[in-house]
């Protein structure tokens, strides 16, 4: 076992982990932050996306010890300071961008990373950015709509 220390959602945290402990395991089992989901565990589905130093990564494909000293943000750190939903989360609710909700934490984290680097993406850019986030319920249309709305843009997506 080795000691690991990092900042998660603005709070300094530390714990004892094995070399093989994944960041997602440390978050869920070590810190009790179960909002970050494990879907496929083969780095395909993106349910486990978190931010490391502002960059979206798959927490099932990063070792906890490789996040030493990093600033990690998870879905638990996305709400506004007063506890209300962030603009992206509110847009997901407003546009029915989830059904079962399993993929939603990863979707929201990917959306936040996209809008941080590209505040006014095109619909195509949104879809391309979500290539690593799989949703098996919604068909993506409402997720794309929500992200477009969260970016303050018109939501006009033709049903296919």
């Amino acid at each position: 076992m080795a000691k690991v220390a990092m900042t998660v959602n603005g709070k300094a945290v530390s714990g004892e982990v094995e070399g093989r402990t994944l960041l997602v395991q440390f978050l869920r089992e070590g810190l009790g932050l179960t909002g970050t989901h494990v879907g496929c565990d083969t780095s395909q589905c993106g349910a486990c996306v978190v931010h490391i130093d502002g960059a979206a990564v798959k927490a099932c494909a990063v070792f906890a010890l490789d996040a030493e000293g990093a600033s990690v943000r998870t879905i638990e750190g996305m709400a506004n300071a007063d506890g209300s939903l962030s603009a992206i989360q509110q847009a997901f609710q407003d546009h029915h961008a989830l059904q079962c909700g399993f993929c939603t934490p990863g979707m929201v984290m990917s959306a936040a990373a996209l809008l941080a680097e590209n505040p006014k993406p095109t619909e195509r850019e949104v879809r391309e950015y979500l290539e690593g986030n799989l949703c098996r319920c919604t068909g993506y249309h409402n997720i794309v709509k929500a992200i477009m709305a969260a970016s303050g843009q018109e939501v006009a997506i033709a049903a296919e």
Binding site: S43, A55, K58, S110, A113
Partner: peptide, 8 residues
């Protein structure tokens, strides 16, 4: 890959 893979 995808954006998250490219960040890593």
């Amino acid at each position: 890959g995808d954006p998250a893979v490219r960040n890593r």
